[in-house]
Design a protein around this nucleic acid. Structure first.
Length: 220
DNA sequence: TTCCGGATGC
DNA sequence: GCATCTGGAA
């Protein structure tokens, strides 16, 4: 079976199992942006608490976030952990949106994909996964998001030769072997997260895993 | 490689 | 208790 066929078959089985997930769990593109920073290396359930607290304080707003006292914002985002570094990362990103994009993240759509990506990557606190998450989930750019789950799970499946393969290399494998489709990239990443949280965990549960027939089970 | 860090499940 | 959680910078 070719890599392309395998990747597409895995998606079909996952979607059959979990249903269409339609990420990102947020109400607005701005909320997606906030979420991408807050979710860095933490569980999404913790981010939900932070977003809710920001909403309750009326702080889910560019100007209000930038002008509020640091302690106020930090208290809201505390459930997401790393609140000191994440506060500064948020400010860097929001300042960029204010100064370079006239206060609206959607203005990034006026640039081509690579230019938009490089602009995001130039911001302190925005790495490849965060940048790609914003591009895909807030702006509907056709780019595949790679995360720690993606590497772990597809190393085990047998598609990635090493667990610590370079981000761009992994991304290239997915994008070269899948149809260039925003909705597909969107849902596939969501499916991978769901699979990795529930089955392909650090200690995997292979017996009941939906893709066990397609997996080579390379565990460490 | 190490630090950042509270919430959650086991 | 303790391991883990949709990373990124130094």
């Amino acid at each position: 079976m070719t890599v392309s066929t395998l990747l597409n078959n895995i998606y079909r089985v996952l979607r059959e199992h979990f249903g269409y997930l339609n990420w990102w769990p947020a109400e607005t593109p701005f909320e997606v942006v906030i979420g991408t920073v807050l979710t860095q290396n933490v569980a999404w359930s913790n981010v939900e608490k932070s977003i809710l607290q920001l909403k309750e304080q009326g702080l889910l707003d560019l100007t209000r976030l930038l002008t509020s006292k640091p302690e106020i914002v930090k208290r809201c985002i505390m459930p997401s952990g790393y609140y000191n570094v994440k506060y500064h990362r948020l400010m860097e990103l929001l300042t960029f949106i204010k100064n370079e994009l006239k206060g609206d993240i959607l203005n990034l759509k006026k640039f081509d994909l690579l230019t938009a990506r490089n602009k995001l990557l130039s911001i302190r606190g925005v790495g490849k996964e965060t940048a790609d998450s914003i591009l895909l989930y807030a702006l509907d750019f056709p780019i595949f998001v790679v995360d720690a789950y993606t590497k772990r799970t597809f190393y085990r499946v047998g598609i990635l030769k090493r667990r610590d393969m370079d981000y761009d290399k992994v991304q290239e494998i997915f994008m070269k072997n899948l149809k260039r489709d925003v909705k597909l990239y969107n849902d596939y990443h969501a499916q991978i997260v769901e699979l990795s949280k529930n089955y392909c965990k650090k200690v995997p549960i292979c017996e009941s895993c939906p893709i066990k027939r397609l997996c080579r089970r390379i565990i460490d």
